[in-house]
Structure formats: structure tokens, C-alpha cells
Design a protein around this nucleic acid. Structure first.
Lengths: 100, 100
DNA sequence: TTGACATATCGGAAAATAACGATATAATAA
DNA sequence: TTATTATATCGTTATTTTCCGATATGTCAA
């Protein structure tokens, strides 16, 4: 929970976009392999497609969001599913409100 | 109110520091020219001193916070006083909570 | 008007970030 | 086993950010 690291992660249009998509995954992605996107998350290729950037960039951005603690990752077979950590988003909003 | 611009402004240790100091100016600065720091603000040289960076850098960081809308400026004589815009800080916390 | 101080702005060097292509790794399918 | 697919990582170039010194501007005091 490093505020600076979190704000850096949020300082990029594409990463903000990803976070917003992951807020309501079924509004933004088509179902995949019978996975419940709300509980399990969305895989890298789906995000890559929507981002219209390379797989490399998408993967790196997801890692940045992950390290900032804003999303969680789960590997299932050859896919890695990422989903928002709602608690973390709440928490940083609270920190902003109380400590900054 | 550009979220990205605001998050960029918050992505720097020194600028976060300034914002936090300005939350309780009289805890962090000595009174100056009989000015009420809470209503009027704190001048650039006081912030420069505490920051331990050059006047140039301090002034630029204040401009970045100003353009992001996080602080307000008032020129009185040869001094420019900066103070937090509490409303703006609240607002970005709300945006974070609701829209991101 | 000149001098002294406070602040703003300009131009730059070094470090960090953005985004890519190429390649490595991991897991499944054939 | 080998081929294929999904993801991660590496190395790179272009851009942005950090922070500085030098200088310009603005304001007051003598």
C-alpha cells in the first residue's frame, strides 16, 4: 500500500481504462472458457484486444497494477485471470480522503 | 478536473509532502508577516525551505499542483501564498471511489 | 530610480516511463 | 515428443519527468 506507487499506476490512460473495464467485466468482455469474470477475472488476451496495444504492453501494465495492489491475479491452466481488488481501490480513496 | 493530471501531480513524493504540509499549515510552518496561514496560505520560500530543494523546483511543483486544481494561489505584495483546495481533494477521492 | 528580495520561467542533464518487437517460459493439444 | 497457444520478460528507442542553475519579472524600500 504505497500511495506513490498507486498514484503512478493510476497516472496512465490505458491502466485507468483497464481498471474501469475490470469494474464491470461482463459489460466489456465476452465470456471466456465458461469462466465467471466477476469472481475469477479476465485473461490477458481479452484485455490486450480491447487495449489495442501489444500483448507485451498489456502484460506489463497488468503487472504494474498488480504490484500497486489494485488488481489480483490467478493462473488457471495457460491463462492468467486478472480482477480488481475492490478493497484496495476503496482503501486508496480513503487514504486520499484522510491522510493526504 | 482531469483525473490523470491529478494522479500525475500526486505521483511525486515532494508534491505529496507539500499537500500534506498544507493540510495543517500551522503545524509545519512558522507564521509569516502576520498572515493567517489557514485562510491565506503559505508562501513559496517557506515551502522551499522545508522541501530542501531549490526555489525553482518548489515553484514548479506548486504550479503543477495548482494546474491539477489541488491548491489555490493568491498574490499579496511580493509573496504568493498557496493553500489546499479541500474541495478538490475531496472530489478526487470521490471520483476514485465512484468512477474508477 | 536603483537595489534587494520573492517568485516565475527557461534550457538542460539525468533518470524514469511508454510502448514496441523479439524471445523465453508455461501449459495444453496433437 | 513436438507444435501451438498464452503469458512473461528482455532489450530498445522515444518521450516524459525530475531537478537544477541561470535569468527574467514583479514588488517594495531607500
Amino acid at each position: 500500500m504505497e500511495p506513490i506507487e498507486i498514484f503512478k499506476a493510476l497516472s496512465n490512460e490505458s491502466r485507468l481504462q483497464i481498471l474501469q473495464w475490470l469494474k464491470e467485466p461482463d459489460r466489456h468482455f465476452i465470456p471466456h472458457e465458461g469462466i465467471d469474470m466477476n469472481t475469477t477475472g479476465v485473461c490477458v488476451s481479452q484485455i490486450t484486444d480491447k487495449l489495442k496495444m501489444t500483448q507485451s504492453t498489456a502484460s506489463q501494465y497488468l503487472t504494474i497494477l498488480l504490484k500497486a495492489g489494485l488488481i489480483k491475479a490467478e493462473r488457471i491452466g495457460k491463462y492468467t485471470y486478472y480482477k480488481r481488488d475492490e478493497n484496495a481501490v476503496e482503501k486508496i480513496a480513503d487514504i486520499l480522503k484522510k491522510e493526504i
